[in-house]
Each structure stands twice: as C-alpha cells, then as structure tokens.
Design a protein around this nucleic acid. Structure first.
Lengths: 250, 250
DNA sequence: CAGTGGTCTAGACCACTGG
DNA sequence: CAGTGGTCTAGACCACTGG
C-alpha cells in the first residue's frame, strides 16, 4: 500500500507529515501488529525525501512505542495491546480511549489568592492570582474523582467564565490559550477518604482512595498547573499507561 | 569549560559519548539549571563532529528532560527539581535516588507452573515454567511493599539460586542475563490490605494500600515479567517521576 | 543584523540478520 | 550474499530571537 505523496510546500515538516501518515496506518489497522514497515530507504525513495527525514519520522514512532527496530531485520509494528498512549494523558482522553464518556461537575471556578506554598510552586508574584478549579470528574455519569487545580491567572484570562462541564482542561489550554502541557511530575498515595471526599465521590467514610498530586509543565518547564486528584479506590484501576523505564545510561 | 576530545575509535558511538559527557556536566553541577549549553555548531566544531551528531546527543537530553531547546535562543539546562528520572525506575534505584537504603526479604524464590492467565501474558509454552519471586521490599530496614513477580524461567536460568536480598532484580537482569527492561505497562488501584498483606507490611488489617500491577518488556516488547506490588499507604507517596504528557499529535 | 535551533539533502561506511 | 537498521559527514536554507 503506497503512501500518498507528501506536501513539499506545507509548513508542516516532511518528517511530521510522514509520522502522521504512519500513525494513521497503524491505528487504522492497515499496518497490523508484527508487520514490517517499509525499509527506510524504500520509504524515503517512494516519498522523495532523504533517508534521514524518513528516519526522523520513525524515531518518533519508536519513542511513542508504536514500532520497534531490530538491526538487520527491520522495523516492526508493536502489538496492539502495547500500543496504548505512553505516559500521562488527560482524564478525558483516558476515558475516551476506553470508550467511556467523560464529564465534570464544576464545584469551584474562580480567581483566588493562594497560599504561600502554591504561590511558590506556580511562581506567582505577590499580588498575582490563580484560577482555582474544583471538579467532580465523572465516567458515564458516575463520579470517579475529585480534582482541585490551580492555574496562574495570567496564563488563562477569561477561563473563569468557560463552560468546563464537557470540555477537557487540556484541550481548552491548547486550543484557546496555545498552552501545550508537555510534562507532569506526580506522586501517588493511598489513603482514606475524608468526609467531604467521601460525600463528593459517594463513598463510605474512610473508604480507600488514591490521591495523585501533580505539577504540569510546558516543554520548557514553565509551570501550568498544580493539581490534586482523589480517585475512588476498589474497582477503579488507574491506568498508568506504557512507560519507558529509564536510567541515565541508555 | 571545554569538553575533552571524543574517542573516534571507540565502539561507543560519538553521539553517545557526547551525551554522557553532557549528562555528567549537568549532574555534577558544572552546568547549572538555566545555563545555556554551547550552541550546536560550537559543540560540533570543538569536538570535531558534525552538527547532526551533536544534535543527536542533545536530542537524547531533551527526551530525558534534562535540557530544553528554545528556537533562536539556545538550549538550556532544566531546573534541578525537574531533573528526576523520567518514568518508572526500579524500586531500588528509586530509593537510592532519595538517599535511602533498599533491601529485600525473600519469601518465595522458586520455579513454578503458573495459571493460565499468567501463562498467556508471559507467552509460556504448555510445559514451560516461570520463576516466582515474592519479596518484602524495605527502605532503611522498614517494610514498605510486598512484591510478587513471575519471570519466564528460560530467560533467567539459575536465578532461583541468586541472593536477591541486596540486589535489584533489574540490575541482575541487565548484568547477568543481558536483558534490558525498557517498557512497563501498569495500573494502580487503592484498596484495603488483606490479612497476609497487613502482616507482611506491619499494618492494621483493612489499612489503605496501593496495588500496582505491571508487565515489563524489552525494547522490542518481549515480556520479561509480570509483577504485582502492594505498597503501604498513608505517609508513603509513590513518586511517579517526571512524565511526558502524550498525545499522538505532537 | 548575527546567532540560534529546525529542517532537509545526498551520500558514505558499519554491524547485524537470514537465506 | 543482499538487505536491513546504526552512525556519521559537510553542507544548505529556514524561522525565530534579541540587540
């Protein structure tokens, strides 16, 4: 199945165009698990790009874990079950990828002055405000998590008036504010639900819950958000996705 | 601070040599947070490599989140607090990076025939055995997790006789069996400790615990291990490290 | 404007795989 | 052996930054 020619005059880089073509072929099933990708030289020649450009596209697929290379043999499509998104995705994206419908009940959505600790983490000036967002996150209408976020107000003017019930925060950040969350740093703890948490999540008091505390950053490590999420326990497994195991010695 | 010349005749690729030089400069503090790296062209010229080779080294630093690029400005060292290892690390590495001493009490370490489910996940033949490993993981001598792993016996001949008390499983896999864990797929759930778990972790029965179920793979997605870890809750936050937030549209 | 990273080319030689 | 990915070069032009 030959690929359509790439658009040489597009502002989208050639390697990026090729990357998306290949992602499409893999996710649509035209390229199946275990299939060999066309050799780099063939791909390059067929699309009239240099081999380095073709490799750059494949590098990105490898980094996402969609394919893997074997020297001397070729590049192969990873198994379907291993093709989930790597790393953290937004709550909404995660649910949708499992075929469920995400929604939110907004409890708090207003500009506030934050405590010293949060001020420091968000790198706010002494007078600067943050948008405080508290949402009960629901899957197919059932409450599964209680989420509290702080975002520097200067990054998101007007967000306090946005309807957040059916939209992902990340998609609003990307589409309306051109802010692209790229990194998160998080820690997870198991604990017992407080009275308020139990009520919001319709749990018994002291039921086990999962608390995730995180900070979200842009590619250049500007802080976008601090977030604390309380997930209901028992029966709700948080998918941590496919992760690279890392050492500093590759 | 000029870098020492690279070894052109080494079997270690030039980009990898340069990558490690730069990691060293960053972790040792010679390059501090916010510092600009030498421009790619300067780095290349100084070390007598092509700019593409220098870029390849920097690409790896960017992927690990040690540095970030800003077009037109330069490449900068990420903030210290943001420099933790990305993604999952082994239990032992994680503890050591926090300045604690990891050890294990081995409860089970023997070859077994596994149930059908595990057989399928590990891709074992009908007669094939797996090494079953159950360990109480300790931090500075205090039990923090109960971990049960299954590893295909064919991958690790003789591992049932290894002393696992003070060694990381991953380091044994790498050094003795040349098996390099590269990916993990995991899910996390909060629940209450069973009687056995409570006893092993010195907790009250029904205390909240964190259960992590995972599968470990090589770079080419061969299954190395299935693992279930029960972490004590309350007071022990599991650091999930710095993660890339991912979508398939970069 | 000079300096930076971002993209791209045409070509080379190597190491490894499998027939 | 032919075919594959792995590494590397010398060079080019672009877009963006900040003085």
């Amino acid at each position: 199945m030959p690929l359509r020619p790439l658009d040489k005059h597009s502002s989208v880089p050639l390697y990026s165009q090729l990357y998306h073509r290949l992602v499409e072929q893999i996710t649509s099933g035209q390229l199946k698990a275990g299939d060999r990708l066309p050799p780099e030289r063939e791909l390059a020649e067929g699309l009239k790009v240099s081999r380095i450009t073709a490799r750059q596209a494949i590098d990105a697929l490898v980094e996402k874990g969609l394919v893997y290379r074997e020297q001397g043999r070729g590049t192969f499509v990873a198994e379907a079950r291993m093709r989930g998104l790597i790393g953290f995705t937004s709550f909404s994206d995660d649910l949708r990828s499992r075929g469920m419908h995400p929604s939110s009940q907004v409890l708090v959505q207003k500009l506030v002055t934050v405590d010293e600790e949060t001020q420091k983490v968000l790198k706010l000036g002494p007078e600067e405000q943050a948008l405080h967002l508290v949402r009960v996150r629901m899957a197919d209408g059932k409450p599964v998590a209680l989420q509290s976020s702080y975002i520097p107000a200067r990054l998101v003017p007007g967000l306090e008036q946005e309807d957040m019930r059916d939209q992902s925060l990340y998609s609003i950040l990307r589409e309306k504010y051109y802010i692209h969350p790229a990194w998160t740093e998080a820690e997870i703890e198991a604990t017992s639900a407080s009275a308020e948490e139990a009520q919001a999540l319709q749990l018994d008091k002291n039921a086990p819950v999962l608390v995730v505390r995180g900070i979200t950053f842009t590619e250049s490590f500007e802080v976008i958000e601090t977030v604390r999420t309380v997930y209901r326990g028992k029966g709700l497994a948080l998918y941590i996705g496919r992760q690279r195991i890392t050492t500093l010695n590759p």
